[in-house]
Design a protein around this nucleic acid. Structure first.
Lengths: 182, 182
DNA sequence: ATATAGATAGACCGATCGTTCTAATTTGAA
DNA sequence: TTCAAATTAGAACGATCGGTCTATCTATAT
């Protein structure tokens, strides 16, 4: 859907609040009424665009992850090489879901629902790998892994470099090595 | 200054873009012209408010840090107990500077300057403690520490709990233990 | 007591916001 | 070919945006 592609592009680049419907109309080359017929309102468009972005990102991420033929510990570390690929894209503007939730300060239950639905399968996959790696407390490890990923995501946006991915990688390496059963 | 206090309160709670001048006028109980006479424009008000918030936060943080009578390694870990205090405040809405920069996607050099001026002394202080703790690569360690702090800050906002602070604390413990010279 | 500077409330400006409406045009299936 | 459904461009709506102007009031200092 060209409308959603245009919308997510602008939402990511300029922010949701700063992107007017007219900007989406221009970017998508479509009539304003077409947007309202499809999505009902700007909020509807926002949710639909973020859902699409979420699905596209997960498809890409899981494919990258599945392509790795590595033992569990190395697979967890390789996640940050995948993030490096993400960070060096010229249209990298951080995580669309995270930016959206931060922009509205958790005040949209619809956005929170989309974000939770986004994070859940990702973290479950990572937790399964952590279990296979023999991590002591997989649930807590996954929360820490998520925290480190998020730190890398915002610092990569902040600094405009991919260094945070490799910084995060060695942090996780240190974390794993204290969590593997002897 | 009551204007700046009101402004930062609204900017933190609702976001900068979502906060109109009229809202600040209402919150501060002041005339609109008074704001423009003092700060010239909304952007001027934003910068002034963020500078004030930055200074207030650093004063608080450094005082908390100085009050700790601990060896360097434990002092680095105690940072996350200080963060816990921050996260449990009912007016916690994440880091004002980080939220602002994320909201404008690095497109305001004025905001970036304020944010850099904010982070620099904090990271330098932490680096000095890391040096005293005998960390192998203090510069890289500080970048990783910053990344972990930022992850905790966003996850605390996200989950509305203080758990990310303690999660981050044990991550840093693991990181330090692999970085201390034998 | 008077003069000066600052703050006040509120009308007002043009621009833009999200949204609706309409009338003409294009599309696709029967 | 025909007819219905979808899309189009653009005017228009009320609300709100950042910002300006003015006229009145309230201090403070000499």
């Amino acid at each position: 859907m060209a409308i959603l592609d245009a919308a997510i592009r602008l939402f990511c680049r300029d922010g949701i609040g700063a992107t007017g419907i007219d900007a989406v109309v221009r970017e998508a080359g479509v009539a304003r009424m077409t947007i309202y017929n499809h999505f009902g309102s700007k909020d509807g468009l926002v949710v639909a665009a973020l859902e699409r972005e979420s699905a596209a990102w997960r498809t890409w991420f899981f494919a990258r992850l599945a392509a790795l033929q590595l033992p569990p510990r190395e697979k967890l570390l390789a996640v940050f090489d995948i993030l490096t690929e993400w960070f060096e894209r010229d249209d990298y503007f951080g995580c669309a879901l995270m930016n959206a939730v931060l922009e509205v300060r958790n005040n949209s239950e619809a956005l929170m629902a989309v974000t939770m639905a986004h994070k859940k399968p990702v973290l479950e996959q990572l937790r399964a790998i952590a279990v296979a790696a023999g991590v002591r407390d997989p649930f807590r490890f996954t929360e820490q892994f998520d925290l480190i990923m998020n730190g890398a995501i915002v610092n990569a946006l902040f600094t405009g470099s991919t260094n945070p991915a490799q910084d995060a990688k060695s942090v996780v390496a240190a974390l794993i090595d204290t969590q593997i059963q002897a």
